[in-house]
Every structure is written in structure tokens, then in C-alpha cells.
Computed example of a mutant assay.
Amino acid sequence: MSVMIYHNSHCGTCLAVLDIVRKAGIEPILIDYMTSPPSHEEMLALLLAMDMPPRQLLRTRESAYLSLKLDDESKTDREIIDTMLAHPELIERPIVVTEKGIKLCRPETKVLDLL
């Protein structure tokens, strides 16, 4: 089975998901989205596959959330996606991709559904 994780090595949940996947005998492909964020099209595809609006994938506790006025409900989905890609710390994580689907794995046990 192939597993890809949009990963932040400083995130405890990302590390817990990585541990679960490795304990299942799978060495995943890690994408450090902080240094290599997905393209707009890739992000849109991930959101569509998760049936999730962009606003739901925002990390609202990041200082950039308020400084960039992302709490403004008039922001379009495109504006939100573009802002997340320009400021990847705003992307909630980890996002896990397998043949069984794509999920935001918070809490980390959600990854079990994909293995």
C-alpha cells in the first residue's frame, strides 16, 4: 500500500500519524508542505476528495489567521486557498493520501481508516 502524508516534522499529530503508519509496516512518502506546499490545483483536489471547504482546513490559532483577516466571511474559497499556499502554516495537518481515500487525520487515529 502506498501512503503519502502532507507532513510537518514539528507537529505532534503528524509524528503520531507517521508512527502509526510505520507500525503498520508501511514507509510513507512524506511531503513537507511547509517548504513544498501543494499547487492551487493539488490543494483543490485534496479538498474535493475530502469533501471539505477550504475554510475548514484553516488553522485558526495561527497568528497569520487574524493578521491576514481570514476571519472575514466574505473571503472567497480561492482567496482562502491562495492564502494558505502563500502561508502554509495555516494549513491544518496531517493530510494522508492512500488508495482508500484522503483524510485530515486529526485525531491521529483517523489514519487507521485509510490503512
Rank of each mutant, 00 (worst) to 15 (best):
Glu42Asp: 10
Lys23Arg: 15
Leu68Glu: 05
Glu79Leu: 04
Ser74Leu: 08
Leu46Gln: 11
Val21Met: 00
Arg22Val: 04
Ala64Asn: 11
Val96Thr: 05
Glu89Tyr: 06
Gly12Trp: 00
Leu90Gln: 03
Ser74Cys: 05
Leu46Pro: 02
Ile95Ala: 06
Pro54Gln: 03
His87Gln: 10
Asp71Lys: 10
Asp82Val: 00
Leu44Pro: 00
Pro53Leu: 10
Leu18Arg: 06
Asp19Ile: 02
Leu30His: 01
Ala49Asn: 10
Asp77Leu: 04
Leu85Asp: 09
Pro37Cys: 10
Thr60Arg: 15
Met50Gly: 06
Leu57Cys: 09
Thr35Gln: 14
Ser63Ile: 11
Leu115His: 08
Leu58His: 11
Glu79Lys: 03
Thr76Ile: 11
Leu18Gln: 05
Leu48Asn: 14
Glu99Gln: 14
Lys23Asp: 14
Arg61Pro: 00
Lys103Glu: 13
Pro38Val: 07
Asp19Pro: 00
Pro28Ser: 05
Glu79Asn: 06
Pro37Leu: 08
Leu48His: 12
Asp51Lys: 14
Met50Cys: 08
Thr98Ser: 13
Ser63His: 09
His10Lys: 14
Thr60Lys: 15
Asp32Tyr: 03
Pro54Thr: 02
Leu115Lys: 10
Ile20Lys: 11
Leu58Asp: 05
Ile91Asn: 02
His40Tyr: 15
His40Ile: 04
Thr13Gln: 02
Thr13Gly: 03
Lys100Ser: 09
Thr83Gln: 02
Pro37Met: 09
Asp82Arg: 05
Asp19Trp: 00
Leu104Arg: 04
Gly101Cys: 10
Leu112Val: 14
Ile102Asn: 04
Leu68Arg: 06
Ser39Leu: 07
Arg78Asp: 15
